[in-house]
Design a protein around this nucleic acid. Structure first.
Length: 209
DNA sequence: TTATGGATCTTCT
DNA sequence: GAAGATCCATAAA
């Protein structure tokens, strides 16, 4: 399938292939690393927006005090206890939405938070939704990317392996040597695990260290 | 350039 | 009643 690249006006090839559903059922850390280089896509009517995943954080269920799933299943975190491949959306600080990809088999309560994207398609749409013009400001943070891709509570619990509203494309894998692991951001419990992964020297990562 | 505080709502204590 | 997987404007240096 071909589309126009707005910067070069030359046709570029887009790989519409999705990862096999079994990918999302691996352990959280493996899925988190594997998601780097894949592409997150949302479709709202005629408006398609997509970005390459360049920064993620892994959250485990019972072993991870920083995880929303740590204290067990509630109405809010219920999607985290579904099977790997579902989408978990939550509202934070009274201001922003964040999006996770559920991992592992059902009832493990683990997920990967998408923290940053590199904009690929629908860039003009993202600029309108974000009310900013600079590319680096469109999707360089978990709240920002949800605004840019119009991710909200109506996508709660969607199946990323089958939905056409929100889904993952295989994209191009990131070399292991280009992946950096570090401590997660903005948490106060279980702070020492290096479960944040990002693409080295990528301009769209939220924080470079 | 880095540091700080405000916005604003859901969940759990 | 408090804290939170954030972002941004403003202030200080």
């Amino acid at each position: 399938m071909a589309a126009l690249n707005p910067t070069s006006a030359r046709p570029i090839v887009i790989n519409e292939q999705r990862p096999d559903p079994s990918f999302f059922r691996m352990d959280t850390l493996s899925v988190a690393r594997g998601l780097l280089g894949m592409e997150l896509v949302t479709r709202r009517g005629d408006l398609l927006t997509a970005g390459r995943i360049v920064e993620v954080e892994a959250y485990q269920g019972a072993d991870d005090a920083a995880s929303h799933a740590f204290k067990g299943k509630t109405e809010r975190n219920a999607p985290m206890f579904g099977v790997g491949g579902l989408c978990y959306v939550y509202f934070i600080y009274g201001v922003h939405y964040c999006v996770n990809i559920v991992t592992g088999s059902a009832d493990t309560g683990s997920a990967v938070l998408i923290r940053a994207l590199e904009p690929l398609e629908g860039i003009e749409t993202m600029k309108l939704r974000r009310q900013v013009d600079k590319l680096e400001q469109l999707t360089s943070g978990p709240g920002k990317l949800c605004q840019a891709l119009d991710i909200g509570p109506d996508l709660q619990g969607m199946d990323l392996t089958t939905s056409s509203l929100i889904y993952i494309r295989s994209g191009t894998p990131i070399r292991d040597s280009s992946i950096v692991a570090s401590k997660r951001i903005g948490i106060s419990k279980a702070v020492d695990y290096e479960w944040r992964f990002f693409v080295k020297e990528n301009a769209f990562v939220s924080k470079k260290t």
